[in-house]
């Protein structure tokens, strides 16, 4: 694997084997296999409704798989409950498509909330420092006392990422990080994702249908079609494939 040459570690942090998930008659995932290595960014590409978001919701235990195995940091997610699942979740950061900021809280409270609820031993000064640190990392130190409704879409995405970073996760899951953003803001978010990988040494899954995002942020891309990964590998390798479905996805979405 060419892209793996770029990352130093080959330790597997997420392992998905033969994963199936249906909603009634709708068979979304039909035998998904994927491995994510430590320090690696993998972009999952695919059309809307192909089950990309379902995949990362299964990884965090928000949804249960029908069959198959999902191991995160060596633990089978479907077998975890209560506190065990919470401990694992603290090691995973999830950036939502809608940012999912708590709209009754200001930015400071949004960022403090996961720390206050999970790290009871931290003092006020330590929490304040952590908040300032992540705000600086996403470049929004001046927005501390604003409400989420006062921010632009790109700023909300950044705060959403900051809120997950405050718990110092080992794995980051980004759900459509650039959807609904203009090209310049999208590029800023892409750079931020790459920075997060470097600075926090995270392994990430980036769910997107934005090929620029995949190209800029990911070591490998995985093409999800008809509930299965059609091709997994470095960007160039995947899109040099002659498969018509991959080529049409490339031609409709991407101009180099």
């Amino acid at each position: 694997m060419e892209a793996l040459k770029n990352i130093s570690n080959t330790e597997i942090v997420i392992s998905i084997k033969d994963l199936y998930k249906s909603f009634g008659e709708l068979h979304v995932l039909r035998g998904v296999d994927l491995e994510i290595f430590k320090g690696e960014n993998v972009a999952v590409l695919g059309k809307s409704g192909t089950g990309k978001s379902v995949l990362i919701k299964i990884i965090t235990g928000l949804l249960r798989p029908d069959t198959g195995e999902v191991k995160v940091l060596g633990q089978e997610v479907a077998h975890l409950k209560g506190k065990e699942l919470d401990v694992l979740r603290l090691r995973i950061g999830f950036s939502f498509q809608s940012s999912a900021l708590y709209d009754s809280m200001n930015i400071r409270q949004n960022l403090e909330f996961p720390l206050v609820m999970n790290k009871k031993d931290l003092g006020k000064a330590e929490i304040k420092t952590a908040v300032e640190e992540v705000l600086e990392a996403v470049g929004l130190s001046d927005k501390l006392n604003q409400m989420p409704s006062d921010l632009s879409g790109g700023q909300r995405k950044r705060i959403g990422i900051a809120r997950t970073l405050i718990l110092k996760p080992e794995i980051m899951l980004y759900d459509e990080p650039t959807s609904g953003l203009d090209p310049i803001t999208s590029m800023e978010i892409n750079e931020l994702i790459a920075e997060v990988q470097q600075k926090y040494n995270t392994s990430s899954i980036i769910i997107t249908h934005d090929l620029t995002c995949a190209k800029v942020t990911a070591n490998r891309v995985a093409m999800l079609l008809d509930g299965k990964f059609l091709k997994v590998g470095p960007f160039k390798e995947v899109f040099s494939d002659s498969d018509k479905r991959i080529q049409s996805f490339y031609n409709y979405n991407f101009t180099e």
């Binding site: 939502f96 809608s98 999970n118 997950t164």
Partner: peptide, 10 residues
């Protein structure tokens, strides 16, 4: 998804 965001933050 604010409720989901709470859940994934343990």
């Amino acid at each position: 998804e604010q409720i989901d965001a709470m859940e994934v933050s343990a």
